[in-house]
Structure formats: C-alpha cells, structure tokens
C-alpha cells in the first residue's frame, strides 16, 4: 500500500511538469505582447524595450522558462504586472469565496445526487426514477449562466430569499455566509449533481442484478441494507470516478458563476487577468487549478484501493 502511494505521488511530478511547460508556452506563444499593453498606446519603442528587459522578456525562451520554474518551485508565482502585488497574495485574497463556492457545491451535489441516484437505481422504472431522470435531462442541458440568471430572477428578485449577488465571508457568521453562497452553489452544482446522480443510478441498477444481491436477500438482510451495503458499496468506483472527472466541470463553472453572481473569487481574478494579459496571474491560476485537479484525482485513485480490495497496484 505504501509503495503504491509513493508511486502514485511520484507520478504526479511528470504530470505537473508537463502542465508547467504547457502553461508557460501557451502564454508566451499566444499573440499579444504584455510589454506593449503595459506601455500603453502612445509609448515609444525604447520604453517598450525597457519594460521587456525589466520583465525578462528579452531573454531566450529556455532561459525565461528556467527562471520562471525556479521561482515556481520556491513558491513564488511572480508579481502581477498591473497591481504589482505578488500573485500568491492575489490568489490567497481571492481563495475564500472560490473555495467556499466549490466546497458548498460539492457537498450539495454529492449529498443530493448519491441518495437520489441510489433510490432511483434500486426502484428503476418507478415514477420516482422516471421523474428524476426527466429532471436530470433538463438540469444537464441548461447552461449555467442561463440557469444562474433564472435563479436570480426567481429566488432573489421575485421571492427575495437570497441576495442578488455578492459574497459574505464566513467570518461574518455562518448563516449570512450560507445565505450568500446558496444560489451560486445550487446553480453551479446542478449539472454536477445530475451527472453524479445518473452514474449512481446506472451503477446501482447494474449491481442490483448481481448474484451477491440475491445472496444477501437469501440471508435475510433487510432491503435497505441490501441496497446500501451491497449494491451502492460496489457501485462506489464509477461514482467516485465521475466525481473526480466532474471537478473539471466545477472549475470551468466557477469562472462563469463568479461572473454571474459577482463573487470576488479566483475565477474573476483569472478572467480579469486574461483581459489584461497579466501573464503571471494567468499562469499562477492555471497552475493552481491543474494542481487541484491532479491532486483530487490522485486522492480518488488512492480511494479505489480502499473501496475495492481487488484493486492493488
């Protein structure tokens, strides 16, 4: 087990290295010169050149990469070209809303999806199952920004249950925090929830036909335990896989939802940075998102081994 863990952790290194190279090249090779942007429309060529030197943009690409990589490894993500603040600080400032949104969304989506999907799978063909699946089609085909504005219209403007936009820090109390995060989390989580629910339903349904379900019933196990202890437990691996894959959905959703609900999070930070070609910020955020994605999927890989004793690496 320890050997497997160590091996899996080591495998993260090349993945992250490739991500680093791609992130670096993507921005350097994309059109548009940050020195020009910084210097403004009327700058003379010499001023632009001075800015280039100051940013190290006159160095060969490889040198730039090494310098950048050394900084990354020492935890220095660089300095924003515009705000002159360290990127690490910028991200940390914005981390709370995004982290809150992501966590609330996952708790909501997983917490609702697994029970619903399990019930639907165990009672396949019932009215409950059919209505769940019908709702899920709608939930999955509705884009988050459309859904977001609909939610704002119904729950914030018409019913007045939630604020229209903005974010209240948890330091100002849990309930106001929850109040501000509920609508965005619901909006962001719907597609994720539907995805997990459908996979849960399909996997549980498949497991309900297995021989060991019949054995459990023959032992006199109550149906509730037959479903949870036997069917759901065996369905855990595909469910976990989809939760991991869905994190990508979540990350891209965060960017949209933070804009719709005007939440000052990392998603907004990166959108603003892209518009201004603020390279260090873009790189920092992409690296962070990639690391989160890779680490969550690492955790899920390790989770397989705990969930299924046949999985040994």
């Amino acid at each position: 087990m320890l050997a497997f863990l160590a091996k899996r952790m080591l495998a993260v290194i090349p993945v992250m290295a490739i991500v680093a190279v791609v992130v670096f090249l993507l921005l350097r090779l994309s059109p548009g010169d940050p020195a020009l942007v910084i210097a403004g429309d009327n700058a003379d060529p010499e001023a632009v050149q001075r800015i280039r030197v100051a940013l190290g943009l006159d160095q060969p690409l490889v040198t730039q990469f090494w310098v950048w990589l050394r900084h990354m490894l020492s935890g220095d993500l660089g300095t924003s070209i515009f705000s002159k603040l360290p990127v690490t600080d910028l991200i940390l400032q914005r981390a709370e809303p995004t982290l809150s949104l992501a966590l609330a969304t996952m708790v909501f989506a997983i917490g609702v999806a697994i029970p619903l999907g399990t019930i639907a799978g165990a009672t396949a063909g019932s009215w409950l199952d059919r209505s769940l699946m019908a709702v899920s089609v709608v939930g999955f085909s509705l884009p988050a920004f459309v859904l977001g504005y609909c939610m704002i219209y119904v729950f914030a403007l018409q019913l007045g249950w939630a604020p229209v936009q903005g974010f209240t820090s948890i330091s100002k109390g849990f309930l106001p925090f929850l109040h501000s995060i509920a609508l965005p989390a619901l909006t962001l989580g719907l597609a994720y929830m539907v995805l997990i629910a459908r996979i849960t339903r399909a996997s549980v349904l498949e497991m309900m036909g297995e021989d060991f379900i019949r054995t459990a019933r023959a032992k006199g196990v109550v149906e509730r335990l037959v479903v949870t202890h036997h069917a759901l437990r065996n369905a855990a691996i595909p469910i976990l896989t989809i939760i991991g894959i869905g994190v990508a959905l979540l990350i891209s959703g965060v960017v949209v939802i933070e804009t719709v609900f005007n939440i000052p999070g990392i998603g907004r930070l990166v959108v603003d940075a892209i518009l201004k070609r603020d390279y260090p910020v873009i790189q920092g955020v992409i690296l962070l998102f990639s690391a989160v994605y890779v680490l969550i999927n690492l955790a899920i890989d390790v989770g397989y081994a705990f969930l299924d004793p046949r999985v040994r690496y």
Binding site: E210, D211, F212, R214, T215, A216, A218, H229, H230, R233, N234, A236, L307, D308, P309, R310
Partner: peptide, 16 residues
C-alpha cells in the same frame, strides 16, 4: 431456510 447458489464466484460480494 438457508440457501446456496450455483456461482460461488459471483454469489459473494467482492468488497466485503
């Protein structure tokens, strides 16, 4: 009443 089945490979739950 106890019961046993044909397929001992699949009649047991693999994760317990």
């Amino acid at each position: 009443i106890g019961m046993i089945f044909q397929e001992p490979m699949t009649a047991l739950n693999p994760v317990h």
